[in-house]
Every structure is written in C-alpha cells, then in structure tokens.
Design a protein around this nucleic acid. Sequence first.
DNA 1: GTCTATAATTCGATAGAC
DNA 2: GTCTATCGAATTATAGAC
Lengths: 217, 217
Amino acid sequence: MATVTASTPAQSSVLPGDDSARQRLIAAAAMVFSEHGFAGASIAAIAEAAAISKSTIFHHFASKQALYRAVIESAAQEFGRQLDSVLSTRDDAMECLGRFQQQHLQHLHDKAPITRLVLRQIEDDGASEDCLALVRDVFAPNFEKLANYLTDAQRVGMLRSDMQPAAAALVLVAANIFYFQHAQVLSQLPGMETVGGHADYSLAVIDTVFKGLQVQA
Amino acid sequence: MATVTASTPAQSSVLPGDDSARQRLIAAAAMVFSEHGFAGASIAAIAEAAAISKSTIFHHFASKQALYRAVIESAAQEFGRQLDSVLSTRDDAMECLGRFQQQHLQHLHDKAPITRLVLRQIEDDGASEDCLALVRDVFAPNFEKLANYLTDAQRVGMLRSDMQPAAAALVLVAANIFYFQHAQVLSQLPGMETVGGHADYSLAVIDTVFKGLQVQA
DNA sequence: GTCTATAATTCGATAGAC
DNA sequence: GTCTATCGAATTATAGAC
C-alpha cells in the first residue's frame, strides 16, 4: 500500500531514489497539474515528466486523486512553515499582520496555477467530500495558526478583546484571495491608483482592518 | 427608470411598451444565461423564453454579447438603486455599513447564477477588453457609491480621517464575494461556528472592520 | 448498440540495499 | 532473505465514434 508517512528516518541511502523520489514526483505532478488541470493531466504525462514509470507512481500514491492532494498539501505545508516564523507575538501586531498579508499573497502568486486549480474546484464542487476534506485537513491548520495568533495577541492585550479572531482571519484571507483572483480588473475601479501593487495592497488592507473605520479616540 | 445607457442608437420606437419589451427580454435572457452559461445559451432558446422571434432580439441588441452585458448591467443597476437608500450619511455609520454588507451579500445570492457567470469570466479572462469594460462601466459606479459614502462620512467626522476609502470598500466587497464563492467549505474552518449564517457573517465582518483589530482607547 | 481509443489502476517480476 | 523502488504488461473503466 501507499506508505504516505512523511518522516523517513533519514536513512542515508546511496540510491538516487529514496524519499526524494517522492518529492521529485510531487514537483513533476505539480507542473503537469498546473499546466493541464486535474482531468487533463494524465498519469502517463506525469510519469514522463518525473522520468519514472506509471506504476511507480501508484507505488507511492494510492490514486491520482491522492497524488493531486499531496501536491496541494505540499504547498500548504510549505506555507505553514513560513507562518510559524512570520507570526511572532513578540513583534508589533500590525507589523506582524502586514508581513502575514504580504507573505500569503506572495505564496498565492508563487503557486498560482495550483491556487487557481484549488479555488476553481471549491467553486465548482465545494460541497463534495473531497473539497470539504481538503479544506478541513489541509487549509484549516494554516487558518488556525492565524486565528490562534490573533487570539494570543488578544490575550496579551495587543488586540481588541471583543474582536472575533475567526472573523478577522477570514477578512484578511478573503482580501488576499479576492485580490489574487481579480487583480486584473481592479485597476478599473475608482480610487485604486492609491492602492498600487501587491505589497501596497497588503499594507492598505492591514491599515484598514487593523485601525478600523471608526474614528479613533 | 431603465436608462440603459447604451451604445445602441436610441431607436425611438413610438410603440408603447417598447421599453418593457426590452426588460422582458432581459429577464428571459437572464434566466437562460443563468441556466446554460453564455456559450450554452442559444439565441433561439432566449427568443423562445421571451416569446419573441430571434430577429426581434437583434433589433434590441447588436449582438449576443451586448444582450449578455445588458443582463449584467440590469442587475447591477438594480443594486445601484438599492444602494442609494441603504447608504445614508444621516444614520450611524456602522449600522449603515452593516445594512450594506447584508444587502450586497443578499444581492449576490439573489442573482447567484449571473454572479457566478461574471466572476468566472473575470477569473478566466480578466484582461480582456470585455471584462475591463464591464468592470469600468458597470461595477465601478456602484463601487464608487460605496467609496463616496465612506469619503463623505469621513469628511463629516463619522469615520477615521486617514482611512483609505477605496481600500476599505474593497475589503468589504471582497469579504462578501469571498463568502459567496466559498461559503460551502467555510464551515470546515475552526472557529466558524461563532460566525454563523449569511446575516451573522455580514455583521461579524462589519464589527471586525469597523472597530478594527487594535485595542480601542 | 457495439467498437475503439484513451486513461486509470493492478499484477507479477526484477534488482539492489541491508 | 526480506524489503522497497522500480518497471512492463495486463486489466478495467469510460467516453466518443460509427
């Protein structure tokens, strides 16, 4: 069966294929999925891109679906690792959240093809168990890191005590995903000149949400 | 009322009900487009739904594309009319913006099929002149109404003076569109129980953005 | 309705590492 | 000798053509 355990005890093998083979396969699959979508990406094409045989793929992954999911998981976990260093309660909260916004938006762009694939899948088929599981198992942990950061900062008195962490996290993430999906047309809206490029956008969002709309006392 | 600004030369037909025929055609087209998408909706099917002939359609609209656009324009203008009554600078700003969020989200849902069509088109082809023109001519006016409300409220001292109206408007709209597109999976995220249904979500967003994240003085 | 092409998945076997 | 990565060939599923 597919041993999907990620933690091989680093048995220094002399063979070119150990656990890195798996990583190479994921990388190759990411490219092919990105280019052709899930349905359009054949196992044969992925095998060719990874320079291995089709059957080897099924040695590593139980199904095409499982491979696809591993690709997404890999990207999400990579971002998750960044998160830990970005969200440090020791720093100023606004600065910290600004970093988060920028890194998250950057991540969406770096993995743009996969990001589009995932968003599209959720839009088309959000009620499917596949989608629900993907969000629950892969994205929820990262979301929780952000929400936990907000809750912690709240406890320490760095953030408004009656703010809802989950709602705030959602607003921040939504602003990024919305921008990722619709940046091309945003320049057509009035007043958008002042918002500018990616980085400026992230800072404008944080300024807005962090300080709020109401008059400050 | 329907002042459908158009590039079409005003064929001033003397027939009474000329304008209502146009409206009926738009309504029928909206249904057919919603059900089958742009490509899947044939002019013949639209003509049948509107109980008129194909050629009558081309008397009212220069092309299928123009009719499609009129459908979107019609929905946007309908929402634009609601906006004027919702955004009244006389009321409390938070309450007013809460109403806006709820109405906007409700509008997205009421016109769900068309909304999906438009969002999809922007995602797939946002750089096309069609999309840019759509946003510039159809959505920008409504966006501007919200931005202007924020600017006005700012001038009157109801909102923080150094807040960026365009950024704030974007955050609010993004939160709604994001929710519209991904509501099905949001329940998989931790802490979402407290956010609840449509109306609660709107209020949670407004609470978050209006009061901000930082500790209030 | 059968036929066919394509793609996913399974099977059985081989080779090298410990 | 067992374990695992790998492969080629065989099997199933399915969508489209005729």
